[in-house]
């Protein structure tokens, strides 16, 4: 029996060293050597400033910006250190009340948008609370507002949204979408 116990402990420590230390460090070495941009968070810079990550959503509340999805990450949403979904039940009163309030706000804010046509991703919280994307329907629904606030023609804003649209990966995987941060940076770049 003692023999088995010692073998167990030695095998445990040995596998911990190989699989828990050497393997992750080897992957880190490869990642940092060959793909540092991705390995360090796909950060996006404007000038010298890191303005965010192209993979992580951030809060956009100003009327001149296309807004991301509602977020349940952290107390104020989009907390990059506290990812979370709302986990509310489909029969939750709290869920339906917040969706109703978001719909009312979206309709009030966006010219041309009416109750019943509000894209569902605009008023529901994402799985991570950090969803960087919105659907094209969601982006188009905000074009009129952004164009008015920025004093730009609607077709121009719409064209910018279209230029930022991402299709399915390899034509088949996932869903078409727009990255909110990159879209807003493109809008800000318009002189």
């Amino acid at each position: 029996m003692k023999r088995y116990v010692f073998a167990s402990i030695r095998m445990a420590l040995l596998t911990m060293f190989v699989l828990g230390i050497v393997y992750p460090l080897a992957v880190t070495g490869i990642a940092q050597a060959f793909m540092p941009a991705q390995a360090n968070g796909s950060l996006v810079r404007r000038g010298d400033t890191v303005v965010g990550s192209s993979l992580i959503g951030q809060a956009f509340t100003g009327p001149a910006y296309i807004h991301g999805r509602p977020s349940a990450a952290g107390a104020d949403g989009y907390d990059g250190a506290a990812s979370s979904a709302s986990n509310l039940a489909p029969t939750s009163k709290a869920l339906v009340e917040s969706v109703s309030a978001r719909i009312a706000a979206a309709v009030a804010e966006n010219p041309g948008l009416s109750s019943g046509t509000v894209p569902v991703d605009m008023v529901t919280a994402s799985g991570s609370g950090l969803d960087p994307d919105i659907t094209l329907a969601n982006a188009y629904a905000q074009v009129a507002r952004v164009a008015r606030v920025r004093g730009l023609p609607v077709p121009q804003v719409r064209a910018i949204v279209e230029s930022q649209a991402v299709g399915r990966q390899f034509g088949v995987l996932g869903e078409p979408r727009v990255n909110v941060l990159l879209l807003n940076l493109a809008l800000d770049a318009v002189k």
Partner: peptide, 14 residues
């Protein structure tokens, strides 16, 4: 322009 469905708790890319 959208996949639709029950999007509460889901990511747009999926």
């Amino acid at each position: 322009t959208q996949a639709g469905g029950n999007m509460e708790g889901k990511e747009v890319r999926f």
